[in-house]
Simulated scan of single mutants.
Amino acid sequence: MRHDTALGLDALRGRPAKFGRFLVYTMLVLVFAGPLLALLVSAFAPAQDPTSLTLIPRSLTLENFRAAIRRDVLHYLFNSFVVVGFGLLLQIAVSVSAAYALARKRFPGLRLVFLLILSTMMLPEEILAIPLSLVLADVPLVHINLIGTLAGMIVPVGAWAFSILVMTEFMRDIPVELEEAARLDGAGDLRIFWSVILPLCKPALGVIGIFGFTMIWDQYMLPLLVAQDSGHFTLPLALRTLRSDEQVGIGVLLAASLLALLPSVVAFVAMQRQFMRGLTSGAVKG
């Protein structure tokens, strides 16, 4: 069986060619997986030189994780889970609702709304930092101060243009005949959305679920604006504090970094099938 490769290595034959392919693949693995392996090994290694990492451990220990726990890393991890849990649920709810209106309805100003949503992806976080902090300090209409609360980190991530655009494009490709058949059976908009449209969007939900989880989990600017004391720190923000503490060794910092990395890996593995189906569906429809 012939396996084509992007590098054209399948055309090479013989033992020297096999050795060359093995060498190239090994180098690629080391380049891409080497830093992750170094992080994993060094997190379990005893105190070491802060300027070096190792792929071959001489001994293993859990002392780095114990020291990280003593630095309240588990509390910061809990805060991150709270923010990403409620934030992702809110983001998915807003995304699918907005996408249904944009994809299946026709109303005046539709293109303008779509353009405004798209324009939010062109603004860096640094530009929005000061306006966002002012809004969170006095939320319009309800006049609630969300600064210094976890809710202040959850509400702003509820609407994300990327998720809305992905769901909108996916819903547009759903045959309108399915919606018309449901209307003939007496179903209303809510029933059609919940029983017809949403079940067909599971692949897209997997895509926005993984990207949304990663986006919220890696938030640094937003917790920096909202948190007023360490009790409201999320794990990415706490890593900055640990790094600036001279009493914290590199092993403790790497252990905390590993704890920050694992949830994203677990989320991808758990939703990998839906994620791949979503990418494949987009490729086939494109």
Results as ranks from 00 to 15, higher is better:
36 L>T: 09
7 L>P: 05
23 L>S: 11
19 F>Y: 07
39 L>R: 02
8 G>A: 00
10 D>F: 11
23 L>A: 14
27 M>T: 13
33 A>Q: 03
20 G>T: 08
8 G>I: 00
29 V>R: 00
12 L>F: 13
7 L>W: 15
28 L>W: 12
13 R>C: 01
18 K>S: 12
40 L>W: 10
13 R>D: 03
35 P>M: 05
21 R>S: 03
11 A>G: 02
8 G>V: 00
23 L>W: 06
19 F>R: 15
10 D>A: 14
12 L>M: 13
18 K>N: 13
24 V>Q: 05
12 L>W: 14
15 R>V: 15
38 A>M: 14
33 A>F: 15
11 A>D: 08
15 R>K: 14
7 L>T: 09
37 L>A: 11
36 L>N: 07
25 Y>S: 14
29 V>E: 02
36 L>G: 04
23 L>R: 03
26 T>V: 06
32 F>P: 04
33 A>V: 11
12 L>R: 06
32 F>L: 13
13 R>Y: 09
16 P>Q: 01
17 A>H: 05
21 R>I: 10
15 R>H: 14
23 L>D: 01
39 L>S: 07
8 G>W: 01
22 F>G: 15
21 R>D: 00
38 A>G: 13
37 L>E: 05
29 V>C: 08
12 L>Y: 11
13 R>H: 10
23 L>C: 07
31 V>L: 13
17 A>E: 06
30 L>K: 07
11 A>H: 12
29 V>H: 01
34 G>R: 05
35 P>C: 06
22 F>E: 07
23 L>G: 07
6 A>H: 03
24 V>I: 14
6 A>T: 02
17 A>L: 11
23 L>P: 07
6 A>W: 12
25 Y>D: 12
17 A>W: 09
9 L>R: 00
39 L>W: 02
10 D>H: 15
12 L>E: 06
30 L>T: 04
26 T>C: 12
19 F>E: 10
10 D>V: 10
35 P>N: 09
40 L>P: 04
13 R>K: 10
20 G>R: 01
28 L>C: 14
17 A>F: 07
21 R>K: 08
31 V>N: 07
31 V>P: 08
23 L>T: 12
35 P>A: 08
28 L>S: 10
38 A>Q: 02
29 V>Y: 05
37 L>V: 14
33 A>H: 04
31 V>K: 07
14 G>M: 03
9 L>W: 06
14 G>V: 07
36 L>P: 03
27 M>G: 15
7 L>Y: 10
21 R>Y: 03
39 L>I: 11
34 G>E: 09
32 F>K: 00
25 Y>V: 05
39 L>F: 04
10 D>W: 13
39 L>H: 04
6 A>N: 01
39 L>C: 10
7 L>G: 08
25 Y>W: 11
16 P>R: 04
20 G>M: 08
37 L>Q: 03
12 L>N: 01
36 L>A: 10
23 L>E: 01
24 V>S: 05
37 L>M: 11
8 G>T: 00
34 G>I: 00
38 A>H: 00
21 R>P: 02
12 L>G: 12
33 A>P: 03
23 L>F: 07
37 L>Y: 03
